[in-house]
């Protein structure tokens, strides 16, 4: 019994040290929610992680495992409430329209941030974990419990979406549905089909 108590104390300390990381990740999961809502997510994650601590196999970093717990808590419990709240929000509150016209770069940033915050979270999280938090594709796959191939396709889709958003802004006229399909490439495709 003393053994499990020691182990329990140790795991609690390890989890406590990851609280800052979990709060960061909560912000990436709920970028538009208030601080309370994010803290709710972190607290639920802490409680669940403690309850499920035997599932951490002590291979690999505890942070990855906690991210994973947080992601599943988010999908199971917080995502739907968040959706309801955001959709009932007055559209005028959404800052995109209210942004003061600044430099072009600044506008581009605002547009991209707006677009990424509006993305479906499964796609957004792949992009943010990789681009902002610097996870490898394998780590992201483990956190989200999906195959690496799915990580790649979601990443690709998310980036193409945002890229279309960027180009809309810079005045380059590109049909977002036809982004990478230049006349040449279309010809090439046809050639391949004919062969």
């Amino acid at each position: 019994m003393r053994n499990t108590d020691d182990e329990y104390t140790e795991v609690r300390q390890m989890i406590a040290r990851e609280i800052p990381a979990l709060r960061r990740y909560a912000h990436l999961l709920l970028p538009r929610a208030g601080q309370d809502r994010k803290d709710d997510l972190v607290q639920d994650t802490l409680e669940r992680a403690l309850k499920k601590r035997h599932l951490w196999r002590r291979e690999g970093a505890i942070r990855s495992w906690l991210y994973r717990v947080q992601y599943s808590v988010f999908l199971n419990k917080h995502y739907k409430t968040h959706l309801r709240e955001v959709s009932s929000e007055n559209p005028a509150d959404i800052p995109s329209a209210a942004m003061p016209p600044g430099q072009e770069k600044n506008m581009e940033l605002q547009r991209v941030m707006e677009a990424v915050k509006n993305m479906p979270p499964r796609r957004r999280e792949v992009l943010l974990l990789i681009a902002v938090e610097g996870l490898s594709y394998d780590q992201a796959a483990a956190v989200m419990d999906i195959p690496v191939g799915t990580v790649r396709s979601r990443l690709s889709r998310a980036r193409e979406e945002l890229r279309a958003e960027m180009q809309k802004n810079t005045g380059v006229t590109v049909d977002p549905g036809d982004l990478t399909e230049t006349p040449e490439s279309y010809k090439r495709h046809k050639d391949i089909d004919n062969v």
Binding site: R12, I15, A16, I19, P20, R23, R24, H27, L28, P31, D39, V42, Q43, L46, E47, L50, E108, L109, V112, M113, V116, L127, L128, A131, V132, R159, L162, R163, M166
Partner: peptide, 30 residues
């Protein structure tokens, strides 16, 4: 895009990193 995303989240994330106290309810949960 990578640069923009990091830049866009930098401020908010830095604010989170700079917090020096843990909300008491987290500790209570633990």
């Amino acid at each position: 895009l990578n640069t923009l995303l990091r830049e866009g989240f930098a401020e908010e994330l830095a604010a989170i990193d700079a917090q020096e106290t843990v909300p008491p309810r987290f500790l209570a949960a633990l």
